[in-house]
Simulated assay, not measured.
Amino acid sequence: MTTTPSDPRRPPTVDDAVQQFMSLSQEFLELVPRLQTYTTGLSARASPPVSHVRTTRRVLVLALSLGRKFMTPGEATYLPGLLERVYTERKERIPFALRRPVRTTVQQVSAALRDLYSTGPDVSHADGTTTTAAQAWEQVAYGHVLHPDHEKWSAGNALAWWATSANGAFAVTRLRMLIVLTRSLIEQLDEEGVFDGLGYLENLWINEDLWAEDGSPVDPETGSARGVAGPVW
């Protein structure tokens, strides 16, 4: 990828922010493998394969670590915040027919991110308690991966990973779709001349890092950003 370094003496422009997002989101799509969705093994009567749980845990760690910058308000690459900035600063360049779709996408992505941790079924345990999808994500994220919060860690120490593996495929898959949707919209806006030249087009092809069911690596699949996953609403 050929890019011109930003001047460190000035704040990043919207073009800088979009360029950074395209690069970091490509890293996410390449490094965070797609999870297989299992329709069995998500209740107390059956358990998912050990290989699936092991692989899921690694994917969740990557998704939480690398995806945080796309999900956290205030970050330069927070998906709806970035699109909102593009709309605000480059509205006059956006064709009139695309202005409503851009605004609609901001609202859809914002709502989807708010519900991201709640995606997936609740998990009922043998002692009669229930762990919601949001609770499992919070216990793993803040008690194990991003922070060593003792309260979160102790609350889900025994079952947090198991519960999250049951819901992880839903949340990770949706996050990937939101990232791809945002990338596709930016590509479309770039084609309309909204930006002052982005270098990502020189390296658009994404080599996905895939794992087999036993957790071993497999040869990467090559595809464009649009071919990684399509947005589903």
Rank of each mutant, 00 (worst) to 15 (best):
T2S: 11
T2C: 03
T2K: 10
T3G: 02
T3K: 03
S6F: 06
D7R: 05
P8L: 05
P8V: 08
R9W: 14
R10W: 13
D15R: 06
D16F: 06
M22K: 00
F28R: 00
L29Q: 01
E30G: 05
P33W: 01
R34D: 11
L35I: 01
L35A: 02
L35K: 01
Q36N: 11
Q36W: 06
T37W: 13
Y38W: 15
G41S: 04
L42H: 15
S43Q: 13
S43A: 08
R45F: 14
A46C: 03
A46G: 08
A46K: 08
P49N: 14
V50C: 06
H52W: 15
T55D: 03
R57I: 07
V59F: 02
V59R: 00
V61K: 09
L66V: 04
F70N: 00
F70E: 00
F70G: 00
T72E: 15
T72G: 01
P73C: 04
G74P: 05
E75L: 03
L82N: 02
E84Q: 12
Y87M: 08
K91T: 09
K91E: 14
K91I: 09
E92V: 11
E92P: 01
I94A: 03
P95G: 04
P95A: 09
P95W: 04
A97N: 09
R100T: 13
P101S: 08
R103G: 04
R103F: 02
T104A: 10
T104H: 15
T104N: 12
T105W: 01
V106L: 03
Q107N: 10
A111R: 12
A112W: 04
L113W: 04
L116N: 05
T119K: 12
T119Q: 14
T119S: 11
T119L: 14
P121S: 15
D122L: 07
V123R: 13
S124E: 13
A136V: 04
W137Y: 15
H144V: 09
V145P: 02
L146K: 12
H147G: 00
P148G: 07
S154F: 14
A155Y: 06
N157D: 12
A158H: 11
A160G: 09
W161E: 09
W161H: 11
W162F: 10
A163P: 02
A163H: 15
T164Y: 15
S165W: 00
N167Q: 13
G168V: 02
F170A: 12
F170P: 00
A171I: 06
T173E: 13
L175Y: 02
L175G: 02
M177S: 12
M177Y: 01
R183P: 00
S184G: 09
L185M: 13
L185R: 15
E187S: 10
Q188I: 01
L189V: 06
D190T: 07
D190K: 00
E191V: 10
F195C: 05
F195N: 04
L198V: 02
N203R: 12
L204W: 15
I206C: 09
L210K: 11
L210D: 12
A212D: 15
E213Y: 13
D214R: 09
D214M: 08
P217N: 06
V218D: 04
D219C: 08
E221Y: 15
S224Y: 06
A225P: 01
P231V: 05
